[in-house]
Design a protein around this nucleic acid. Sequence first.
DNA 1: CTGAAAGCGCTTACAG
DNA 2: CTGAAAGCGCTTACAG
Lengths: 337, 337
Amino acid sequence: MVTMRDVAERANVSIATVSFVINGSKRVAPETRARIEAAIQELNYRRNVVARALASSRTRILALLHPDLESRPNATVIQFVMGAAHGARERGYDLVLWPVNDDEQMSHLLAGGLVDGVLLMEVRISDPRVERLLASGVPFALIGRTEKDDLPYVDIDFAATIELAVAHLRSFGHERIALVTQRTKAQAGHEPGRIMRVESAYLDAIAPLGAPPAIVAVEGTSAGGREAASVLGADFPGSTAVILVNEGASAGLVKGSRALGRRVPEDLSIISAATTRELGEMIEPALTVMAAPAPQLGRLAADALIDQLEGVQDAPPHVLIPCALEPGQSVGPAPVD
Amino acid sequence: MVTMRDVAERANVSIATVSFVINGSKRVAPETRARIEAAIQELNYRRNVVARALASSRTRILALLHPDLESRPNATVIQFVMGAAHGARERGYDLVLWPVNDDEQMSHLLAGGLVDGVLLMEVRISDPRVERLLASGVPFALIGRTEKDDLPYVDIDFAATIELAVAHLRSFGHERIALVTQRTKAQAGHEPGRIMRVESAYLDAIAPLGAPPAIVAVEGTSAGGREAASVLGADFPGSTAVILVNEGASAGLVKGSRALGRRVPEDLSIISAATTRELGEMIEPALTVMAAPAPQLGRLAADALIDQLEGVQDAPPHVLIPCALEPGQSVGPAPVD
DNA sequence: CTGAAAGCGCTTACAG
DNA sequence: CTGAAAGCGCTTACAG
């Protein structure tokens, strides 16, 4: 292994000077710099990042903290993760994956000094992991939001997304629009913030329509989707359109509706929000989706965290991006009865 | 920050002794050990992993090297990744994501000393990254295989998987079975090994049937799937069943077939291999799939690499697991004409 | 069984 | 503009 000492000897300088040119941290005479750069080239030297981390007490490693994602068929998740990994890489950081659930394990990890900062996914309205993070002093950024708005976050702009979805459906004449979200096993107050935000955005957006709200929460699976279809048929038969914010249930909702004799989109229009175009295309008929800006959000989350680490920014960054409408074949004119 | 020195002082021992009890690396008198453990508790001490890494020249970080996965709607990929992250975590290692394409960047990373070992995804038959890895001396394991069989790898057992698929279709009376794989932009000899292995397994498995082979390669998208449907109809109209090893094309193949008037499964049976049950269920009719053992393979890849790092194993581990058949509604009796 | 000390490969005040 | 030296927080022969 070639070290900084080897480079220094070959260039006839001290290791301090080598460090200065590598980091650009101090002015160095042009000839000296040239000698050092030549030596680095010739020896094919790379600085040891572990030693650098110990000496500078900065590891340039970011952790992505997430619950168990192993079993979930969630197309947007990998886009998030990869977006964050790319964003980090481009700024000279590495991203490590931390599949962590209990917070005992979490405090272990945080105190180890491995990471400079943390990205937190699947944030709950009230999230104990945020408290842990705050207590640990390790900088972090959220993908999603808690109830308090003073922490740095990036998130889907659900209000704008739902508003857009409702506007799109209204332009097709729909007035009775239902919402299908995701049921969670979390206790009250600890649900993903997403669900609460979606519901209140929905209530706001349909208020002008005068029709009563119709909200159904089911599991994020095909079975959940079928359940949603039958609950809609039984409890809200007047609804002519559905906004779905439950990626995993999308196929089941279409299949279930059809099984109950409701054609899509002739009898029931569907918009699937916060998902991917590719997933929508798999379904028959191809769903009109609102594509989650997952790759961008992942990147921006990494950026926000790194800005914070490097003291670039002043206020905690708050980034909101709405989903983009991608018309498919699942939205049609409201049926006249 | 509380250091080992703090613990040593409080327990009235040297830091060496503290190190011994933390690592279990040397026998320590019971009373001394108790004092040290108490001090650790009281101070809530956690060993600094960076310092440990520098001193021991082992970082306990593994890297997952993969091409750009950002855009791909591949349900099995995240299962792989998370499986590997879990496997690593359980053995006290961290997994970092390295989105790397050019190998200039790669040698930079390898020489930095950040990682103890590398997991390589999307392995090509002839893969320059493998040469780089070999040259760098950093231990690694493959997810997939190159042409040479002497490197440690875990992979789907495509031979067994295809054999199983053919047997399943034969039990329904099918004798003319086509194969749909994935087209790649890679130059000859640098394709993913998977494709070559699948094709030769297919040729072996259908040989006893006497029918001529029918192989179609398309892109892993809905459009690709539709293209496969029309090529099959035009070039291989006699085929009554398809084995699909192209997750992204599955929905398109079904839709395209139906659009051409071939019902699934009445006119055409389909098995989708190396995918997930959840993805199969999204499609109408629900596909009969052969589920990729992605979570296990991810875990086993991490295990194989760690075994290697810790000198546990002797021969390079070679792990092959076939996909498991999960019957859906897309396979039926061969039509009689 | 325990400790003093060297060393891992860097960074960073501090002098000059 | 450059260097000598301390220090980051551990591990690990080596003595005793």
